[in-house]
């Protein structure tokens, strides 16, 4: 019988690949992010803003404060939303995108706007990608998106950042 020599590095890579394949097979769909233009992951990194950065911006005095638009669930918005933010329709729904368009209709295309949602984990959010694209398509050039890794509750409310309720 003839044995083929297999180098140790090849064995290591093979083993690691097998382990990864095994792990992935154990957790189907759970780690599958949304993909494509509708995904929050489609938003360029340069357009993201971190929660701490936004908090500092909101606390600063002056005129550089953004218009904050929540583009997710209205019910979750009613429960809690970032102080001063406005509900602008769910980005995943055609009616939501129409509402977003109406909300920004009278604004300058240079207006500093920050979109956020926080309905679910970042790479699962169905609202931010379409909402961001909508504003880009409408010609808005100064749009940022708040990066909430898990959701609004865990990454904003639990951090003690400013929130308010509807009504």
């Amino acid at each position: 019988m003839k044995f083929t020599f297999v180098s140790r590095p090849s064995v290591a890579v093979g083993l690691a690949t097998l382990v990864l394949l095994f792990v992935c097979a154990q957790c189907p769909a759970q780690f599958t992010p949304l993909t494509g233009p509708g995904s929050a992951d489609s938003i360029p990194q340069a357009q993201l803003i971190q929660p701490e950065e936004l908090v500092h911006m909101l606390q600063a005095t002056g005129t550089g404060k953004p218009l904050l638009l929540q583009v997710g669930s209205h019910l979750l918005f009613d429960e809690a939303h970032i102080t001063g933010s406005v509900y602008a329709g769910a980005g995943s729904q055609p009616t939501g995108l129409q509402q977003l368009q109406s909300t920004v209709a009278s604004l300058s295309k240079k207006k500093f706007i920050v979109l956020y949602c926080g309905c679910c984990p970042w790479n699962r959010c169905p609202n931010l990608g379409p909402a961001f694209k909508q504003l880009r398509d409408l010609g808005f050039s100064n749009v940022k998106v708040l990066y909430l890794a898990n959701n609004l509750g865990a990454d904003w409310v639990a951090e003690g950042y400013p929130v308010e309720r509807s009504h």
Binding site: V13, A16, L20, F22, V23, Q26, N150, A154
Partner: peptide, 23 residues
């Protein structure tokens, strides 16, 4: 590199992507 992959796999298997709990 292989060790890193194995550790990453172990973290995934242990539920490393679980989100934070409610406040």
């Amino acid at each position: 590199f292989a060790l890193t992959l194995l550790l990453a796999a172990a973290c995934l298997a242990a539920g490393g992507t679980r989100s934070a709990h409610a406040a």
